[in-house]
């Protein structure tokens, strides 16, 4: 019903992200009101200050006026701001209610934040990492929790943000009116790769959404985030089955896309986890003192059940990646890539 993009949407006013939803349009009205009101008061105060500084600068023989106070003026500049501030509060509250109350027919998707990756679980059991696929024009409600520390889910184009807290569920909602990609940031500091904990909302036209649901290749049309190039790897490489790339190259893109390189270096330096470089075919000492040779099965197990065999010197902090998150083709590509780093 909303597949036709209204002209009101999709624009990015100067200094603001583009308007991706009705809430964003409403939000912008209040923002610009505050902006121009601030400009007015700034000119009043600072303009007045500069004016007085010039007109009443020190001059020989200038007599100053002995003014101590002026009750009417003081009452005026107490009462007028009070009225304005109460109006701003009321306006802010009314927009806020729209921002946080999802329609009852909203489609629910579950979100898990973990250092430093967003994963999304759909009702039908499919999962996605770093990519939230939703249909255009449908209200979406995200029910979110964290596996470790506090994160925060922020979509500038929809003007919504909500902390994602371990031990409880919080929620955020939006109704995308613009097809394409919308940037997601983590906005609560969560450690080393906080600034790398990015994701994207892919808003699909209905027919493309059906294709995605059926697990078939689909196309994202519409807006792109200005950072599309940077995140291209993360997003498009999620389905590399048809890519005409050598297997290790596919794997290289995948480890970027899945956020693996946040913790695993490819140059031999130890980060949160062991480096990929030069491990394949070599023995590694584990936490319990036993040794294991890194082969295809070890890598596969360490991705799907990271806690099974933890290399000595590292903490067992990696989240498991299920078959839904990394399919067999992708798994093969990743193993081939790690093998190629010898």
């Amino acid at each position: 019903m909303n597949s036709v993009m209204s002209k009101a949407y999709g624009k990015a006013a100067w200094g603001l992200p583009l308007q991706g939803s009705d809430v964003a349009v409403t939000w912008d009205h209040l923002y610009w009101f505050l902006f121009w009101l601030s400009v007015f008061f700034f000119i009043l105060v600072v303009g007045g200050m500069i004016y007085f500084a010039i007109v009443y600068r020190k001059k020989e023989g200038r007599k100053t006026k002995y003014i101590v106070d002026h009750h009417a003026l003081e009452a005026f500049w107490t009462i007028i701001p009070t009225i304005l501030l109460m109006a701003i509060f009321g306006w802010g509250w009314s927009v806020y209610k729209k921002q946080i109350h999802a329609p009852t027919d909203a489609m629910e998707i579950r979100v898990i934040g973990k250092q430093w990756l967003w994963t999304f679980q759909y009702d039908d059991g499919r999962t996605e990492a770093s990519k939230l696929v939703v249909p255009l024009g449908k209200p979406i409600k995200l029910i979110m929790t964290s596996q470790d520390v506090i994160h925060s889910f922020f979509i500038p184009n929809f003007r919504v943000k909500q902390d994602v807290v371990p031990g409880m569920y919080t929620s955020v909602w939006f109704e995308p009116k613009v097809a394409g990609e919308h940037q997601v940031f983590c906005t609560e500091y969560c450690g080393t790769s906080h600034s790398g904990m990015l994701a994207k909302v892919e808003v699909l036209e209905p027919e493309q959404y059906e294709l995605w649901k059926a697990g078939k290749p689909y196309q994202v049309t519409g807006v792109k985030t200005p950072s599309s190039d940077l995140l291209a790897a993360a997003q498009s490489s999620a389905r590399l089955a048809n890519a005409k790339l050598p297997l290790p190259d596919q794997g290289a893109k995948l480890v970027q896309a899945k956020g693996c390189t946040a913790c695993h270096s490819i140059d031999g330096s130890a980060k949160i986890g062991p480096s990929y470089k030069g491990i394949f075919g070599h023995e590694q000492e584990l936490l319990d003192g036993t040794k294991v040779t890194v082969d295809e099965n070890y890598i596969r197990e360490s991705i799907q059940k990271p806690q099974a065999k933890v290399v000595k010197g590292f903490n067992p902090v990696m989240p498991p990646y299920t078959k839904d998150m990394i399919g067999e083709e992708d798994m093969n590509a990743i193993v081939a890539y790690i093998k190629s780093l010898n």
Binding site: W27, L34, F89, G92, W93, V95, Q99, I100, S152
Partner: peptide
């Protein structure tokens, strides 16, 4: 004042 305004803060905080 921007940040005190509930709706505006949601977008601008952090």
């Amino acid at each position: 004042v921007f940040l005190a305004t509930l709706a505006i803060d949601v977008h601008l905080t952090d």
